[in-house]
């Protein structure tokens, strides 16, 4: 049984106008029919560009946004749009690590009390101070710094604080929303190693969101690519055999730290269209080098088993755009 099963998940945000009397003039199609499963103990990487809906998807799963339609099943239980009270036990199992090591820690509170937050909120009995110091030790922080404020820590140390807070309730699933993209390269590797060690030790499942394709490739068992609210492609060995033209373009655009690497960038035309009025048919068709008439008319379905993709004219292995 998969740990998480999302079926046809849709999240639209209304676009309001007017100051006194608000009226809805449109919908942002942030997540538009996504089906994903997370298996116990795996890391599912989720990549995509700004506005593709990956963060919204994560927040729906974390119960931070009510979903517009669709279903989320967690550990066999339907948790779609649960009431606050019914959601409480689920929150113990699902934790989140945020992108911004500065923004995700309250600057006016001491680190010890920030890490103790989950224990206090869920009324976990026991010696909280000891529990917090054990957590700090586990994530590589000095437990004596219990009484310090976030501003006294560097970016990497703050992200460790965020990890300790997410770990406090021994959750099953941790949603990592760009956990290392604000960090320097040398520190980034420290945090990625820490996440890996914790996964092995506690049998955690990760939903790992990032825009850095090298990082995602390193940590993930399977990788899903999102474009304008939809899954374009999902596979374990995505980088070796990308089928979707968008995945190909994304991979070719990634700057690799190797001067002699073969560089044949596929430069896409234009920008990502607005999610308020997404294009007809395949959402990638206005920028796709392979687009034909059919692509503008008919939306491709996500097909395949272990390697899923949604494209009428996929790039065949060994072929090119």
């Amino acid at each position: 049984m998969p740990l998480v099963e999302m079926t046809d998940l849709v999240k639209h945000f209304p676009v309001n106008e007017g100051t006194l009397l608000k009226r809805t003039v449109g919908q942002v199609h942030a997540v538009d029919g996504v089906s994903l499963t997370l298996r116990q103990g795996e890391t599912l990487g989720l990549v995509g560009e700004t506005g593709c809906g990956k963060s919204t998807l994560a927040r729906c799963l974390a119960g931070l946004h009510p979903v517009t339609s669709g279903r989320i099943v967690f550990a066999g239980r339907d948790i779609t749009n649960l009431s606050r009270k019914a959601m409480r036990p689920v929150r113990r199992e699902v934790q989140m690590i945020f992108q911004d090591p500065y923004g995700s820690l309250n600057p006016r509170r001491r680190v010890g009390s920030i890490i103790a937050d989950p224990l206090v909120i869920h009324k976990i009995p026991g010696d909280r101070r000891k529990a917090v110091q054990d957590l700090m030790e586990r994530v590589g922080l000095n437990p004596e710094h219990y009484n310090r404020f976030p501003a006294e820590f560097s970016g990497g140390q703050r992200q460790r604080i965020g990890v300790a807070r997410a770990l406090a309730l021994r959750p099953k699933l941790i949603i990592c929303d760009e956990p290392v993209s604000a960090l320097d390269v040398s520190i980034q590797a420290q945090i990625l190693n820490l996440l890996k060690d914790l996964q092995d030790e506690f049998g955690l499942t990760y939903l790992f969101i990032a825009h850095d394709l090298q990082v995602v490739r390193h940590v993930s068992d399977r990788i899903a690519v999102m474009y304008l609210g939809k899954i374009a492609e999902l596979a374990p060995d995505l980088y070796e055999h990308p089928l979707h033209p968008y995945t190909n373009a994304l991979l070719s655009a990634t700057a690799v730290a190797d001067p002699d690497a073969r560089r044949r960038r596929i430069i896409l035309r234009g920008d990502v269209p607005s999610p308020i009025a997404p294009p007809s048919g395949c959402r990638f068709h206005p920028r796709c080098p392979k687009a034909r008439e059919l692509c503008a008319q008919q939306e491709p379905r996500l097909e395949g088993n272990s390697h899923q993709f949604s494209c009428h004219f996929p790039v065949r292995p060994g072929g090119s755009l």
Binding site: S186, R217, H218, V256
Partner: peptide, 24 residues
Amino acid sequence: GLLESLPGSTGARKGRLTPIPGQP
């Protein structure tokens, strides 16, 4: 150290990276 801490530099997927220890 910078080059070695990059994911993909070691080639090993899902392995441990080699970070530079400590803080700036």
